[in-house]
């Protein structure tokens, strides 16, 4: 069984921008460990000569004409923003 440590869980949580408690890290370590172990059954298959599938249909580079369209009105766009000021989305301090 692949063991996932709580430190690995905390690292992954940081990468995914999720704050996590010690208790949660332990719970997720167990659960992710068993899911990863389950997923490792794929190693039974020799895939050395198999192309990966990223897309099931044979489509490539679907482009539209490079023409600008009408944007959304600013008031509408800001309607769902948790905080905004002077027509702009407001966030906490980025630089100290």
């Amino acid at each position: 069984m692949t063991k996932i440590t709580t430190d690995e869980v905390k690292h992954v949580a940081h990468l995914a921008r999720l704050s996590i408690t010690e208790q949660e890290a332990e719970k997720f370590a167990d659960q992710l460990g068993s899911i990863i172990t389950f997923a490792e059954q794929l190693n039974e298959l020799d895939t050395s000569n198999v192309e990966p599938t990223t897309h099931v249909l044979e489509m490539k580079n679907i482009m539209r004409e490079d023409k600008s369209g009408k944007g959304l009105p600013r008031e509408e766009v800001l309607k769902n923003a948790p905080d905004h000021q002077d027509g702009q989305v407001k966030v906490p301090t980025i630089l100290e």
Partner: peptide, 14 residues
């Protein structure tokens, strides 16, 4: 080990 492997198995399933 995980993502690319799964995409290859996806090909086999298809």
């Amino acid at each position: 080990a995980y993502y690319k492997k799964a995409q290859q198995v996806r090909t086999l399933i298809k």
